[in-house]
Every structure is written in structure tokens, then in C-alpha cells.
Design a protein around this nucleic acid. Structure first.
Lengths: 145, 145
DNA sequence: CGGTATCCAGGCCGATACTG
DNA sequence: CAGTATCGGCCTGGATACCG
């Protein structure tokens, strides 16, 4: 830019359309709120539950846990509660014994799933690239020792 | 499904195009890897740094910290290191004193930013809806007490 | 079955001090 | 300026036990 060329030139700097000069970048207060929401939504378990409910439709508590795999009931309860609180899922209690509780995505939940579709696709497409990059990085680290 | 109709029928179930029957849902092992990657990428600080580098182009260490706001150098270092390891950013050291280190997104980093654009937009668009839902939920909780 | 309540280990993360 | 190193609090999240 200013003539002082760095060691590593930005050779790969493809001109990228600033696709996401997001709508609310104006107000820093709103920005903070949006970040807070992303913080809640971009949680590992939330994402996985969202996945399963997108794919599976209406599911029972245990079934979600089984599908997600590796989640404790504590975290499943907490995650579903928080998703319900945000209006992402509905919780339907059937008054039978033994208890039967169904969870399903709301319209809002579905749109969130769609929004995350891009990220999921990105991860799937670039998995190899990332693993390679990580291995190369670690190699360099080891060599430096 | 089996004739036992629930209390809350799925009345709001807008038929949603299954936009994201993602490409790799086939293999559970690959799925796990993708989830791991999402787990690393869907981190609060990573997202915010990604934001700033998308908007600001090439930035210095301190400048990123200043822009993100509220991040400790420890977390900034850790976040940038991990992003570098994944091949999302380049780290360029200028051999001058005092030190001068530039960070910039790689092409991969840019594509990740683009992928998250949908989520960011979603959060901005549905902020009100979520806040309302949360308030209503909390209200019901209080009433139940 | 679908939770809630309790305990507790591990790691996340900030604060601080120091270095090239 | 751009880190590394160390300490310590807190909070996440798993394991377990119990309830309606």
C-alpha cells in the first residue's frame, strides 16, 4: 500500500466483493445486540440440535439426544430450553404416561437453519483444505523447536 | 404419525424447502469432522475478528484488538493463532523495531466471511423477534412461579 | 420418559508481569 | 508493539442421583 512491502506479500488477495457490509453496521449498540444473538445461536449444541430438527422434523427429547450423540441430558435440556426461549423451537407436552414431549422447529428456527446452511456447506467443502493447513502449521511449529 | 394427535398441532409448519440437505450427511465420520470445524469456527472471538478483517482489510495486532473491543491480548493472540492454523488469516512480520505484524484474511477466510453473512443478516433481521420471544418466555416463567 | 438438583473436575479467560 | 508466561477465579459441562 505505502511502499513498505512485507516479507509475505498478499499475493492471494483475490478482489472480493464485500458481500456482507451488513445492514446494521451503522449503530454500534445494535451491532452489540446482534453479536450477542450470534453468540447464543452459534453454539455447538444449538447447531447440532438445529441440524437434527431440520432433518428429522418433529422429534422427542430422547430421540434428539440419540441423534446428536455425545450430549448429556443436562446440556440437551439447557439447549432446547434456550432455543425455545428464542422462539426457535416449540415444545409440546403430551399428557400421557410415560411422558411424551415433542420438539419441532418454528418458522424462525427453519430460517436460522437456512442461514447456517452456507456455513455448513463451507465447512464440508473446505474440510480437507483446513486439515491440510493445520497439519502444515503444526509441522512448522515442530520444526521450529 | 401413529394417530395420537398432540395438543399443539403443527399448524405453523410452513412447507420449507429442505435447502440444506448438506452434501456430506452420508458419512457420519465426515459429519463429525465438519462439526469439529464448525465448533472451532463458530467461536465468539473468531467471528468478531473475522468481521473486522473483512471490513478493515489488512490490520495490525493492536488495531484488531481496538476494533473488536473487550478482548484480552491473550485471547486475541490465541484466536489469531488458531485462525492462522486453519488457514483463515496470514500473519506477516515486518522486521523493524518496534515490531510490526500485519494480519489479513486469506481467500479461505474471505469465503468463510461470506458464508457467515447469511447468519449475520439473519441475526440483524430477527433481532426484534427474538427479543420479544425471550421476554414473553421469561414472562411465562415468572407467572408460573 | 423427561426432566431437576447437586457435586465437582477441567478449561476458559482475564489480569498481571516480563521480554525481544 | 507484539507477544510469552504464570496465576487464579469462574463457569461450563459431565456424572450421578432422584422425581412426577
Amino acid at each position: 500500500m505505502d511502499g513498505t512491502e512485507p516479507i509475505t506479500a498478499a499475493e492471494g488477495e483475490s478482489l472480493f466483493a464485500p458481500a456482507c457490509t451488513h445492514p446494521t453496521a451503522e449503530d454500534p449498540a445494535i451491532e452489540a445486540l446482534v453479536e450477542a444473538i450470534i453468540g447464543q445461536v452459534a453454539d455447538k449444541w444449538t447447531l447440532l440440535v438445529l441440524e437434527e430438527l431440520t432433518a428429522g422434523g418433529t422429534l422427542r427429547f430422547t430421540e434428539i439426544g440419540r441423534r446428536v450423540g455425545g450430549i448429556s441430558q443436562k446440556m440437551l435440556t439447557k439447549t432446547l430450553r434456550e432455543m425455545e426461549r428464542m422462539g426457535l423451537v416449540t415444545r409440546t407436552v403430551h399428557p400421557v404416561v410415560p411422558p411424551h414431549v415433542d420438539y419441532a422447529l418454528t418458522d424462525l428456527g427453519h430460517t436460522l437453519g437456512a442461514a447456517f446452511c452456507g456455513v455448513w456447506t463451507w465447512a464440508a467443502e473446505n474440510r480437507r483444505r483446513i486439515e491440510t493447513a493445520q497439519a502444515a502449521f503444526d509441522e512448522r511449529e515442530d520444526a521450529r523447536r
